[in-house]
Computed example of a mutant assay.
Amino acid sequence: MYDYHTHSTYSDGDYLRSMFAAAEAAGLDGVGVADHCMVLSTEWARRTRREYGFNFDATYERRREAIDSLRDRFDLEIFDAAEVDYEPGHEEEIRSFLADADFDYAVGSVHALDGANVHAVDHFAALPESRRRELVARYFEKLVSLVESELFEIAAHPDLVERNSALRGYATREQYERVADAFADSRTVPEVNAGRVRRDYGRFHPTPEFFEVLGTRGVSFALGSDAHDADSVGPLADELRAFADENGLDPARPDR
């Protein structure tokens, strides 16, 4: 049982030592620390780095040293990874950074729409419904581009728009099928993400319909809790185990 998507204080999570101790206590065989990393030159990315202090592109070597110093203290395989924001047209920026950083694997995410974080309910709720539908369609276009870029081993929370009540429910089966076809032809695998299972959203990514469509294409999945605090690691590991067992999943392992 591996959890490939957790966060530490090197972005917006908990202390490395605490996350590793929680993963070990949860009976995980391995855990990946995939801190938020922005190397894009877009205005949204620059603003987010400035306002949220996401500077992992400048601190990943220090975190790598910390991981190396902690490995022997836990009966756990620990992966040095990053969750990297993706934007079409910026592939060379990302590719260059990942080649230099040489992580164990990279997780790709689409977090921005209309110059705002996908989580920003107030921003999207103020828009006409027709515009919100357009933006959801744009989200899936970006996701297809992310998968086709072959930059990442894992695509995080592949229907992140479902977390936002102003964007939820607008995705179509046709959009799911386009993304599923892209995954079927790519080395990148989608993630079963439990990051909102124990919050008001209460469901996994991808949604049941999207999960079913991906399954028809024979797509493999990685597992990720998206845990940001140590107290969440164990409960979310249990949720992921149950989901994998119920659905007969043999989770993928990123291949270096």
Score class of each variant (00 low, 15 high):
117 N>S: 14
118 V>R: 02
79 F>Q: 13
79 F>H: 12
114 D>E: 10
110 V>C: 09
93 E>N: 09
112 A>L: 01
106 A>C: 15
83 E>A: 01
130 S>T: 07
115 G>W: 14
114 D>Y: 04
117 N>R: 11
92 E>N: 14
95 R>E: 13
111 H>E: 05
88 P>G: 05
97 F>V: 07
96 S>I: 14
117 N>M: 15
103 F>V: 03
81 A>E: 07
84 V>N: 00
83 E>I: 00
124 F>E: 00
119 H>S: 15
128 P>V: 02
100 D>R: 11
97 F>Q: 02
120 A>C: 15
130 S>I: 14
87 E>M: 08
107 V>G: 11
78 I>G: 01
96 S>M: 13
119 H>P: 10
123 H>D: 04
108 G>N: 11
90 H>P: 06
82 A>P: 12
105 Y>W: 11
77 E>P: 09
122 D>H: 13
124 F>M: 03
82 A>K: 11
105 Y>E: 15
125 A>N: 06
120 A>D: 15
99 A>W: 12
82 A>L: 07
84 V>P: 00
112 A>Y: 01
120 A>F: 04
85 D>P: 05
94 I>A: 03
122 D>E: 12
81 A>N: 04
80 D>V: 06
87 E>I: 06
130 S>N: 09
91 E>F: 13
129 E>A: 04
78 I>T: 09
103 F>H: 09
88 P>L: 10
92 E>R: 08
102 D>I: 12
104 D>Y: 08
105 Y>L: 07
128 P>S: 14
86 Y>V: 02
107 V>F: 02
98 L>G: 07
84 V>T: 09
104 D>R: 03
100 D>T: 13
116 A>Q: 04
80 D>K: 09
108 G>T: 01
116 A>R: 00
111 H>W: 04
98 L>E: 08
124 F>N: 00
99 A>Y: 14
94 I>G: 04
80 D>G: 11
